[in-house]
Each structure stands twice: as C-alpha cells, then as structure tokens.
C-alpha cells in the first residue's frame, strides 16, 4: 500500500517542482516504485523539469474524466526504473479536478506504487485544495525569506486543518555565506518560527539550473551539493536517519580539512 506525499509551499517559485522531480527520482534510484503527479493544472512544468515533455499523450484531467485509463496516461521514465509521471493538463483550469476525483485517483495509484508524489500549484486557493485532497503526508517548502516563511506558516495551518498531520519542512535555496554574515535567516531561525520537523535543507546551487536545463534531476548525478542534499532528503523520507550535510556554512578548520581530503562531512 503506497503513500501519498504532497509538495506544497504557499508562495510560488520556491522549489516545489524541483523538489518533486528530485525526490521522485531519488526514490526510484532506491528501487521504489514512484509516480509523480503534476497537479499544477494550466501551468504544466514537471514534465519539462523531468525531461519528459515530448512524451505526453494524455493528462491528469483526461484520467479523472474517464477519457483514458490511468495506465495510458502514465509516462514511464526510461532512465530510472520504476519512475512514472502523470502530467498536468495545460489547457484547462484549476477546477478541472475535484477533491473527490483526486482522492479516488490517489487511492487507485496506491495499489500499484510505493510513493505517489503530488506537485501542488502555488497559493492556497482551490487548485491547492484539490491537490492536497488525497494526501497522507506533506512537505512544505520555504526559502529563508520573510514572505516565503509567512506563506509556509499559512499552508501548515491549512494542512493541519485538513487532517494532514505533522507536515515536514524543507528549506530551499540557503546561502551559507549570507547566513554566516547574519544576512539570511538560519535553519534554526526558521524552525524556531515555524515549529515543525525539518526533513532537509537544499543550498542555493547553480547546478539546479543546469540540471533543469537538461531535464535531468540533480539527485541523479549526485555530485553537486544540491544533488547530495536531495539524496539525503530521499533517505529521510524513507525513514532513515541522515545527518544534515555541511553546506559550508560553519567552515571550521576541521571541516575545511575534511573537504580538502575529500571527506564528505556527513
């Protein structure tokens, strides 16, 4: 029996789609059977980030309307065994899928897959509410900026009101150099404010843009700091305890030495 995890944020552009692509790929690399649902109807993007944009035939709305079977709409990612994408409709609006239809779809997919990861639209309107309808768990993404943290707090409240208990926090685009100077809120600051459990931290990393350009999630190459961060988050999602990576923020002598000699600090 699979688990439905929604990736949400409130504020737009903080990394929901990037995270969905990387966690999905990460889970598939760990031999899980995974389907990614792009619930951002009208602003389809997950296909592009995954590099699967040329293979779309049917979409999420076709499935819930019964125009095709689920199997027909799922795109199999040939690079990663066990990874599938259910793309969003591009020419429909947010109300094309109802909460009931979403619950039914998620329930059906749970029989087949270990993880169903839902990429939410930004905002807290109906599109978001439809997207979270079938969820068992949620990951809330924020960046270390006041507006993103505020919106994350709103979303956490709404998730809890919708019986999605204990959402987990992912802090994206952290810049250790700025944190060090006191010009960016630290991980501790943000956890202190939002008071939820942390699933991980992803640094601001140009490799995310490079890998998105290519349509290959950073988690797959695993060399970049962001890719490693997503590998760790994937493991934590599966219940493993993995320490936070050193984002070069606390560059003590020891961690410098470790880096010099090629040790990964945790």
């Amino acid at each position: 029996m699979g688990e439905v995890i929604v990736i949400t944020s409130g504020k737009g552009g903080v990394g929901k789609t990037t995270t969905t692509a990387n966690l999905g790929t990460g889970l598939a690399l760990l031999d899980k059977k995974v389907v990614l649902i792009d619930a951002d109807i009208g602003l389809r993007n997950l296909d592009l980030v995954m590099g699967l944009e040329n293979r779309i035939v049917y979409d999420l709305v076709n499935v819930v309307e019964g125009a095709c079977r689920i199997k027909q709409a799922l795109i199999k990612d040939k690079r990663f065994e066990g990874l599938y994408l259910l793309p969003a409709a591009q020419t429909r609006d947010k109300n094309a899928v109802s909460p009931e239809q979403m619950v039914k779809l998620c329930d059906d997919l749970k029989d087949e897959f270990d993880y169903i990861i839902v990429d939410c639209p930004a905002g807290i309107e109906q599109g978001f509410k439809n997207a979270i309808a079938g969820a068992d768990r949620a990951i809330v993404i924020t960046t270390p900026e006041v507006s993103a943290v505020r919106d994350a707090d709103r979303v956490i409240g709404i998730l809890e009101a919708n019986e999605i208990k204990k959402p987990m926090l992912l802090i994206n685009r952290v810049r250790p150099d700025m944190v060090k100077k006191g010009d960016m809120m630290s991980i501790e600051d943000i956890i202190d404010i939002l008071a939820i459990d942390l699933i991980g931290v992803v640094p601001d990393d140009e490799n995310i843009i490079i890998s998105t350009n290519r349509g290959e999630p950073a988690v797959a190459e695993g060399k970049s700091l962001a890719g490693q961060a997503y590998q760790n988050i994937t493991k934590r999602l599966m219940g493993e305890e993995v320490p936070l990576i050193d984002l070069a923020g606390n560059d003590g002598f020891l961690s410098k030495m470790k880096k010099l000699f090629g040790f990964k600090s945790a």
Binding site: E145, V146, V149, R150, D153, R154, G157, V179, K181, G182, D183, M184, M185, S186, D189, D192, I193
Partner: peptide, 20 residues
C-alpha cells in the same frame, strides 16, 4: 550589531501572531 536576519525574524514573529 543587529543584523538584517534579526530584523527579519522579529518582524516575522509578530506578523505570524496576527496570522495565526
């Protein structure tokens, strides 16, 4: 020195009290 993140944190805490 009161850094910009101190200011950010303080402002956030207050606005969230209203929001919550």
């Amino acid at each position: 020195r009161r850094t910009s993140k101190d200011v950010a944190k303080e402002r956030l805490k207050l606005v969230l009290i209203h929001d919550r």
